[in-house]
Nucleic acid binder design. Structure first.
Lengths: 255, 255
DNA sequence: CGTTGTGTTGATATTAATCAACAAGTGTGG
DNA sequence: CCACACTTGTTGATTAATATCAACACAACG
């Protein structure tokens, strides 16, 4: 029974007509094999039917309940995906970055809203066109199934976090998970002896709404973790993790 | 922005070599079209390569962390899927019933455990065989993508519940959601004027672990909803919903 | 007929939310 | 360039929701 079994994630696929189709530059070539099953020509054809869009920070580009006419592939930046209750309570269900897909579900309407955290670039397809293209590219369909499956595993991890973890464990889990996703590191990523420096482009309010907490609890808990030397917080948008393993122990309730 | 947008769910597909392949008997023929895209002969071939298994109540048949060698389709009964923390805290991520698939993810190991709630019958395939079969049946792959997408939408709803809803809202959401799934109704399902009678095969402990609460809070909250005439509880395993709309209002925080 | 598992209800404890004040950083306009 | 508003984050005091601890009711079962 592993609570931190790192699943093998497929190599991010970035569909960008301007720069042509490419895999995420941050990821090494040894990543998952299914990516390679997609023919480059097919990918180019897929990407060429898309519109590239740039979204300013804070701008909402998907509204829950709207008719789902598009399918999107993020090519740069970070977006937050969320659901709202009528009285304004918000749950962020995930942060989407380069290579992530939005609007996979077959449902008629979007089941979530999406807002740009920093400047987001994305590639937008019409879903009707996507359906036609998928019939031509079975490998793409396989790839999407793989992506959806991985998201499902992540969603189940998040349910465990939201349903059963303490505030302390939630913050530790959040930071440890981000430490595992290479693209979220700061430019000067690795300090001495595997010391990690994470970029947190989102606000405390976003973190709170992602972890099912309030901003005050997020702030206090980070302060506490800092006082215990489990993390360092040089400024509000950066976190240094001196010992990822120790943080992961906290994340899974081990002490 | 709809918090209770009922997504069109695909018609449950039951792979049962003994009774031959079939769609869920409880569902009408007008359900989702993609089911029909799968050729009956293909389905028969798929089902014939499977092993049918019966599991006694309380028996665990998938262990988190074990090598994921099989893929399963539930044909009867209800199973609970869950994740554990090292100290024993449990989060039930979902209940699987007739037509549901287990083990979709491509990861090497199962990311959850599964235990039978009542007597469960399922169809088990080797994953290597599944991969080969999927290459032959692109329609099946499409169908699995659809299933995974719908599960993802449900998972996001559950994140909203776990992260932001009160105990009262969680119970109301849980009951309202089950009221929408036809197979969970008691045999004598519809009383006078759309009054619903739900079967709850799982224990209070299961409900608590699904909703991120304790058994005491579940019990107290059900008592409270009963005293307000929003539900009736003739016995521990049945719930009567006199007015589903009123319960849905509670579920989404509207009063 | 006791034993065990499950559910309910009550009393108390605890975690995190709420309410409140303030500090630091950012941008604006005079 | 500085005063000001505004946003974001931190910290403190208090409250509230739910967890925990405890007792008991009831049914199923040997």
């Amino acid at each position: 029974m592993t609570t931190h079994g790192q699943t093998i994630r497929p190599r991010p696929l970035v569909l960008d007509p301007a720069r042509n189709v490419q895999f995420c530059a941050n990821c090494d070539a040894r990543s998952h094999s299914v990516c390679n099953a997609i023919d480059d020509k097919d990918l180019a054809r897929l990407a060429s039917s898309a519109v590239q869009v740039k979204i300013e920070p804070g701008h909402t580009f998907v509204d829950e309940g709207d008719t789902a006419e598009s399918f999107r592939n993020i090519t740069a930046g970070t977006a937050k995906l969320f659901k709202l209750l009528p009285d304004g309570r918000r749950q962020i269900t995930g942060f989407a970055t380069s290579g992530d897909f939005l609007g996979l579900a077959v449902s008629h309407a979007y089941s979530f809203s999406a807002e740009a955290v920093d400047e987001v670039k994305l590639c937008r397809f019409s879903r009707s066109k996507l359906r036609i293209l998928l019939d031509d590219f079975p490998a793409m369909e396989k790839r999407l199934l793989e992506v959806a499956s991985n998201e499902l595993v992540a969603a189940q991890d998040q349910m465990l976090l939201l349903g059963r973890k303490t505030a302390r464990e939630r913050l530790a889990s959040f930071l440890a998970a981000r430490a595992h996703a290479p693209q979220h590191h700061c430019p000067a990523q690795a300090g001495p002896r595997g010391m990690l420096r994470l970029a947190l482009p989102m606000t405390r309010s976003d973190i709170a709404d992602y972890l099912g907490l309030t901003i005050e609890t997020v702030s206090r808990t980070l302060t506490k973790l800092k006082s215990e030397k489990l993390i360092d917080v040089p400024n509000a948008t950066e976190i240094i993790i001196p010992n990822l393993h120790a943080l992961e122990m906290v994340a899974s309730g081990g002490n």
